[in-house]
Structures are given as structure tokens and as C-alpha cells.
Design a protein around this nucleic acid. Sequence first.
DNA 1: GTGCACATGTAATGTGTTACATGATTAT
DNA 2: ATAATCATGTAACACATTACATGTGCAC
Lengths: 182, 182
Amino acid sequence: MNSSSALEYALLGLLRQKPHSGYDLRKAFVTTPMRHFSDSPGSIYPALRRMQTRRWVSAMVEKDHARKRQEFTVTSAGTRALVAWLRQPITREDVVWRLDQLMLRFAFLDGNVERSDALVFLEEFEREMTAYVRELREYEKTFDSNLHATTGYLAFKNGVDSYHAQLVWVRHVRKEFTEVVS
Amino acid sequence: MNSSSALEYALLGLLRQKPHSGYDLRKAFVTTPMRHFSDSPGSIYPALRRMQTRRWVSAMVEKDHARKRQEFTVTSAGTRALVAWLRQPITREDVVWRLDQLMLRFAFLDGNVERSDALVFLEEFEREMTAYVRELREYEKTFDSNLHATTGYLAFKNGVDSYHAQLVWVRHVRKEFTEVVS
DNA sequence: GTGCACATGTAATGTGTTACATGATTAT
DNA sequence: ATAATCATGTAACACATTACATGTGCAC
């Protein structure tokens, strides 16, 4: 169905908030906590071109600006694509392999989907997260106890810890959301 | 200097623990918590070939086994490459962009470097982590308070939380290590 | 008048993903 | 016999990274 890169959706999400130039978007990746995206022109400009040919965004040359500068705006097709991405059901694979993308999706929910969709997102997130943490704790039991001081075991424990922290966050946010809605 | 992919070092690390076939390594990525590596043959076999031509690993065909099966062993050059990767100074970029790789490095410290190197690793990790968490908290202050209920802000908070959880882990492990060594 | 920030691109390279492909051995 | 597991690969494709490349306007 769809399968564009996280970068493209990150750009779409930012453009939905307000039109930006390629340069603006690059700066956003440096100055905001969306740090894990590269600010290299070699990734951002081609991504914008791809989305342009796909009619997800449209470019307008700004005359009023002193320098040449193109502002990109999300089209209705682009919005539909973004919303479809945001509303995808959350799978175990998302939790295991693409946690960062899930958080990116959550960050862009506001202004693009209904509050009820955000609740569904959080419920699914909590469900998959709970299951995965349980799975990790099961796996933990299989460790030989004389390995407990090894860096391998400690690294694994760190994984469990950080997934657990994530789970605590989801529960907290979901509770907040439920209270506001009801 | 060096710049191989995380996948190659993951394979090296596993092979250092004991020789494996390509198939074994694939299974390791499915059955252990090293889940974020793909178990696709299209990534693992070419990576093994690359390392073989680079003389980081050597392959031996096992006769005793019923089926054809190649076991890979790390050469001394491969070990040197792994150790060099493990002992690299930790940078801010590592913490921001490659946290998973840092944990992978930590997991493979045992059996490959001195205990003192592990301590240096933890010290540098804690230093960079502390600085980054402080940076994030500074950034948090710049948020308009009427945005505090937005998913964007909550996603950011989640980032701060999980980095903080990581920091707590590092401090704890470092304390343990220091006590054992002294 | 020189350097920096603005602003946009291209080309080479490597590599991960997906899908395709083959064949042997073991268990049912 | 036939399905599942073992075992190894290749080919097409898309994409990110890095480095290279160009040019404008402003500040000092």
C-alpha cells in the first residue's frame, strides 16, 4: 500500500504545520530535538522532489524574499497520505524496530487526526508495549545467573529498562487523554 | 579511519563469542533481543562476504555436519577492528544519533577489552548523556506553556524521559563497576 | 573585500530491504 | 510423500551519506 521513508513523513508533518523551504526544514532538523534526521541537502532536497512528483507537496517561488527561495506546501493528497500513515494500526514490529517512528507519528497527531484517533493510537501502543515488555522479562529468566555481571546482560537490562520507561510514559499520557475526553 | 556498518560489528561481536554459520547468525537476530537487525539473507551473507574479502573473518566448511555449512571465525585483524570500534571515544553524535550502537558496543565489551576500558566507556557515556539531557531540559523551557497538552510536546517529553532513564542506568552500572574494580 | 549565513542542488558510493531462487535433510 | 527446517545465495531497487559544487546578500 504505502511505504515511504520516515524522512518523507517527517517533512510532511513539518510542512503541515506551516510551509517551509528546504533550507528551513534542514535547520529544523539541526535546531529542534528531531535530531536523528540528517540535515544533509543530499537527503532533504531529493525527498522533496520525490514528493513533488508524487503531488504530495507543491512548491512556490517566493518573490518577496530577497534571495531565491521555494516554499513547499502540503497538497490534499499529501495530507491524505500523512493521515493514512498516522492512523496505521500499531504492530509488534513497530514497537521492536521502529519506536522512533511511532513517536514521530504521535508528535504529528495534533492537527491532523481526531482526538479519538489519538486515543486509539495510545491504546494500541500500550497493548503492544505491554506484550513486548512481558516477552523481554520472560527472556530475562533464561539468562544464567553467573552472567548477570556481564556487559551483555547489563545491556539487555538496559533495553528492558528503556522499554519499561516508554510503557510508563504511554500509560500516563493515555490516562491524561482519557480524562480530558470523557 | 574506519566506518563499517553496525551490522558488520554485530556479526563480528557474535563471532568473537564463538564461530557461527550465516544461518546461525540470522537465527540469533530473530531469537535474541538483538531484534533490530534484520535476519534477511540479503543483508547477512553479503556482509560476511565483505568481511571475508577484508580478512576480518575466515570461513571453514564443516565436514562433520550433515549439510553443507560454513563456519566463520574472526581473524586477528577482525579482532583488532572490533576492539578499535569498541574503544572509540564517545561523542555527542553517538548519544544523539546512535544510542543503539553504543549499547551494542557495551554489550560486546566483555571478553574483548580490559575492565578499565569498560570504565572509560561508562564515564564518557555518562558525560555525554548528562550534557545532552541538560540540553534537552533547556530546550524544554522554550516551549510555550499553552502547548503543553499537544502531542508534539508530549512526544518531546517522552524523549527526555527515555534519555533520562538511560542516564540513570549508566550511573547505576558505573557505580557497580567502580566498586568491583577498586 | 572577505567571510558567513542563506539557498539549492548533483554525483558517487555503499548498503539495507525485498523478493526470488535453489537444494538438501529431517520429521510426520 | 510432503512439509518444515536447514542452508546459502543473487538481483532489483530505493535510499541515506558524503563530498562536491554553485551562487547571492549581508555584516564587519
